[in-house]
Nucleic acid binder design. Sequence first.
DNA 1: ATATTATAGATATTAGATATCCATAATAAT
DNA 2: ATTATTATGGATATCTAATATCTATAATAT
Lengths: 169, 169
Amino acid sequence: MQFSKSTDYALHALLHLALAKIPHNGNGHKGHNVGIKELSATLGVSESYLSKIMSKLRQDGIVRAVPGVNGGYELARQADQITFLDVIQVIEGRQGMFECSTSESRQHRLLAEEGTASTEQESPGKNGCLIEKVMFGAERQLHQYLREHTIQTVLNEASERCNPEANKK
Amino acid sequence: MQFSKSTDYALHALLHLALAKIPHNGNGHKGHNVGIKELSATLGVSESYLSKIMSKLRQDGIVRAVPGVNGGYELARQADQITFLDVIQVIEGRQGMFECSTSESRQHRLLAEEGTASTEQESPGKNGCLIEKVMFGAERQLHQYLREHTIQTVLNEASERCNPEANKK
DNA sequence: ATATTATAGATATTAGATATCCATAATAAT
DNA sequence: ATTATTATGGATATCTAATATCTATAATAT
Ligand code: SF4
Ligand code: SF4
């Protein structure tokens, strides 16, 4: 039950892209694309492996990629339109956290199909399994939080931390 | 990013133990222990593998086990004292969902140690990493939900479903 | 045309989850 | 005490997914 390293890499890569967009960013070069070489050097991850990850991110419309000289990657949307959930789901896939593998068991018939025959009143509220109900609920909580936090969230907090007086109003 | 099958098995097993405790439970035998054979038959999982899982649950004080004739397992605490989080952590372990593997990278030094030098005012609020902050926050949400739901939660809903009129008060 | 950069496929390596077997220890029933 | 029964722990086998690398190819700017 851990996020894969790829998710870690993806988040860091995106954050780097986001920072590269900001003009006044120390290093001279303006807002142009970031190549896999630069990413690899910054994150300390091999080019080969990173490019796979970036490829996935492109396929899902998180980043744009352009080959050729001075090519590289850039964010495909605004940083506040890229949620943590987006990134995680691209890398980890979209299957649920909980998939029961005992649905052929005697117990399943007891738990999941229990209420259906007990009264003649049929399925009041689509009575799914009660274990699943809890697990899905938990996942919903997690997803909600991850949807509310974007790359921009991190950017904001970072800049606030750098000059704590600046946006005190 | 999925819970293992073992977690699935553990939850189902515990639920079976909880149901076995209830006296008026159709089958004649009163409240005595339930052996690995019965569990295996009910869940449709091999005895060998299940016993490993039950063993873990015992080591962590979730169930009690007694060997010998008429031995078997029973819940070690009240059903409302066994949270989903307890069960999951026994099986999946207690490491965090997110462990960054790039903490030696150039980017880490930028993100996590950014604020420390920017002002002479030192570490206002233990400025940890901002990515971790989001991920840990998400995990906290998840854990909170899982802590609020217990084996008893499922039991309650199940009995309520069986006789929807009973506890309408 | 050429150098550069991303892409996709094939493949190797590793680590963890899943599963089974067996020898041993503990307990209740006789 | 003996015996049958049941859980336990160790060793091991198998399978799957994550991690990682290499190479050939396609696309692009200069
Ligand atoms: S009882 Fe629920 S969790 Fe268990 S197998 Fe059926 S649907 Fe899945
Ligand atoms: S920046 Fe944060 S997430 Fe990234 S390596 Fe450092 S501590 Fe980990």
